[in-house]
């Protein structure tokens, strides 16, 4: 936490320090100390303040590796995922200089991701009397979708190197705001002789599993990361800008701790059970948002 905030604090410190020694249009070396501090935007309590509302989408990227799993195992489906989810934020921006400011943003930050893969599982064929006669394998399509909501707080340094082009960078902190909800399904081909046994003995071609995790031992409640954005101000009025922003949220903290080893029994009959070990997952996001920035 402290380490990730350090560059941000240094950046603000550098801006403030540089500003304290400002030149002006009359004095290339700044005013003499006897006249007191250089009047400037940073020296006044009435620093320019901008507030903003943003809305857009998150494109989330999930990644995880599992050791010990077969390449054709259904578990491989869960090693990656991506997907879209809504994003909305509000922020307050305080200008330190005309081109540099600090911004504090709070966001409703929904993440949703999923994947679809073909896998191979064991299949038992039965005769007309319901007796198993053959053990074989069959292809199966596995897909899943997971979703979780964070409340994200991002203190950012804003820099406008070219008029209207805005760069933002700084740390970001995510507070988990919901359980992780996952829906996974397995689908067999319609003409396949294999089936999933239903609870009442029926033969099913697909099955769905829903899982909700709201355990702070299984999900990290607080995640740290860094956010970088590129934005462009399109003035609508003298005090309101329409601002498209493209941001990247790189999280140092995983959404969940590394899981315990689990048994992959998808090929128990043909190859035997396998113990697989998942690594610590990663979840990063690309954000495309449109905002209204209002100078107060």
């Amino acid at each position: 936490m402290k380490l990730s905030l350090l560059p941000f604090l240094l950046a603000i410190g550098a801006c403030t320090t540089a500003y304290g020694q400002d030149e002006d249009v009359l004095r290339p070396k700044g005013r003499p100390a006897s006249l007191g501090p250089t009047p400037s935007r940073s020296a006044s309590s009435s620093l320019p303040v901008t507030i903003g509302l943003e809305g857009g989408i998150n494109l989330s990227f999930f990644s995880q590796s599992v050791s010990g799993a077969l390449e054709t195992s259904p578990i491989q489906t869960f090693t990656k995922g991506f997907g879209l989810a809504p994003y909305a934020s509000m922020f307050v921006d305080v200008g330190i200089t005309p081109t540099v400011g600090v911004q504090l943003r709070a966001a409703y930050d929904r993440k949703s991701y999923g994947n679809s893969e073909d896998a191979i599982i064991d299949c038992t064929l039965f005769d007309e009397y319901g007796q198993p006669v053959q053990i074989t394998t069959t292809p199966v399509n596995v897909d899943y979708t997971s979703a979780i909501t964070y409340i994200t707080v991002s203190p950012q340094v804003r820099w406008e190197p070219v008029s209207r082009l805005v760069l933002l960078a700084g740390p970001t902190v995510q507070f988990r705001g919901s359980a992780m909800v996952t829906e996974a399904s397995q689908n067999l081909g319609q003409h396949d002789a294999c089936f999933f046994p239903g609870p009442n003995g029926e033969e099913l071609k697909s099955r769905v599993v829903n899982d909700t995790v709201d355990d702070s031992n299984a999900l990290n409640s607080l995640r740290l990361g860094a956010e970088f954005s590129l934005a462009y101000r399109l003035p609508l009025t003298t005090s309101i800008d329409l601002v498209p922003r493209l941001g990247y949220q790189f999280m140092f903290t995983a959404p969940a701790p590394a899981g315990n080893p689990v048994v992959d029994d998808s090929r128990t009959l043909t190859l035997g059970q396998r113990v697989v070990t998942p690594s610590e997952p990663t979840l990063h996001s690309l954000q495309a948002v449109l905002g209204l920035w209002v100078r107060l």
Partner: peptide, 27 residues
């Protein structure tokens, strides 16, 4: 729109102005 702006000079028609600025919004 700058930290400091000043020392203007204008053409006689008053339509074109040159001025100095420190940390202007324009690069």
């Amino acid at each position: 729109d700058a930290t400091h702006a000043g020392t203007a000079t204008l053409t006689p028609d008053g339509r074109t102005m040159y001025f100095a600025a420190y940390e202007h919004d324009v690069r």
